[in-house]
Design a protein around this nucleic acid. Structure first.
Lengths: 238, 238
DNA sequence: GGCTTGGTTTTGTGATCACAATTTACCAAC
DNA sequence: GTTGGTAAATTGTGATCACAAAACCAAGCC
């Protein structure tokens, strides 16, 4: 996006002044960084410098500062006392808390979404789930992370999005960098999910089964790291 | 805080360089605004201008911009497409979602906190609850909001704070401006809470009763507005 | 060798400026 | 009185600069 020419020239193209959110540089930087974090391109522990990001994205430090503040507020990044910002490190306790929060928020979101999932949307979810499985078969970690996220967010995101979705997104931003690392470590082959089980529960309008499937999906997916996994992960990052 | 002289001079006073977070202006502005929002000094719908806040707090626009970005990220404020920031308006749907999210998050937080609440902490919570009741008796709305928040946050805030507490705080930031308005409208006398019931449940280590009390506390406190209340609230803000 | 000590470099912070977009004010025309 | 359009004021955005704090690095000391 960063072109010296003003980015707002194209507003001339929208005749009757459609809202057409003219994107600011700050917003653009924010989205770039968020996407990078969610797709696991940021390693836990790495420190993020203002001027570094600014140079990388070819913008001035000003919009970067604001984007970083936003991400810190959403707990995607961590601000230390020394005025330095870094990608947060994961701990056993934090992971347990994240799992608990995910179960709590996402089962609630699924329950809210359930009545609004019609057959068209259900078919779409089945298609997305196929793409998740394809990514696993192709051993494409990047695609897996993207598809996996797309499946969950599409599931929950049917109206009523203003309160719950930002909370869920904040939690995802917190575990995504770690998840990339963990899957890199244990291998894509050991990935399991309960997506099909959840969709079958949707078909039966069985809220109980839906909650159960989602809870299992979270706990088996994120919370199933054995002690040995942790040990080798920790020595790896040193 | 804004004094022309550098605020960091006082670091000379801390001899062995205690971390002693030297506060930045941006952080200070953020805290001022957050406290103002949580204590109901911001009316829903009011638009917040950068230079206005800067003048009010006697700082340059730069730190204000970052503080506002943070608050927008935490959903305390709302950024519109016209690049304008305002205190979000409440709707019936949003309030229902907020109640559901509060129940979900705060019962979980209470359950996590329960094992860590010893007799000393319990006594402290009883004392805080007394202060809530005092505020109601004195019809002091400002004190009530402060004490009420202090009670809940002290309750949940025993270790394990890094994931759940920010989520809870974000939700509180979203309903606080409205709560002030609503209580202003229905009167302080009609305030009820289940704090004592919750504390008794803690004494019995009865998780089920604790969750029940907290859910009732939320639903009766926030979610009990009748249709008539909404109508008059809406006409009032026009 | 480990630790301090000095200077250099890097980095975040905050103020200011220029600019563009938006809103507001105002005046003319119907 | 209402509408339409232009000018002025307000406001957010982004770049740049000066400064202070922190991190870095290398030589020196115990």
């Amino acid at each position: 996006m960063p072109s010296s020419a003003s980015t707002r020239d194209q507003t001339l193209l929208s005749p009757i002044s459609i809202p057409e959110t003219t994107i600011t540089r700050q917003e653009w930087v924010y989205r770039q960084l968020k996407e990078a974090i969610l797709s696991g391109q940021f390693v836990p522990g790495r420190s993020v410098t203002l001027r570094g990001i600014a140079a990388m994205l070819d913008v001035s430090p000003t919009p970067v500062r604001e984007a970083l503040r936003r991400l810190v507020a959403e707990r995607a990044l961590e601000a230390h006392g020394n005025r330095r910002i870094s990608v947060p490190q994961m701990t056993r306790e934090k992971l347990a808390d994240i799992c608990a929060a995910r179960v709590s928020l996402e089962t609630l979101a699924a329950e809210c979404a359930l009545p609004a999932i019609d057959s068209k949307r259900l078919a779409h979810l089945w298609r997305l789930n196929e793409q998740v499985d394809e990514a696993v078969e192709n051993r494409d970690l990047g695609a897996y992370l993207r598809r996996h996220r797309e499946f969950h967010f599409t599931f929950y995101d049917v109206g009523r999005t203003s309160v719950l979705m930002p909370l869920i997104e904040s939690v995802w931003l917190q575990f995504s960098p770690f998840m990339r690392l963990a899957i890199d470590h244990i291998g894509v082959d050991y990935l399991v999910d309960r997506h099909a089980e959840a969709l079958h529960a949707v078909e039966r309008h069985d809220i109980g089964a839906l909650r159960f499937a989602l809870e299992a999906d979270v706990r088996e997916g994120l919370g199933s790291l054995t002690e040995a996994d942790w040990k080798s992960l920790e020595t790896e990052t040193d």
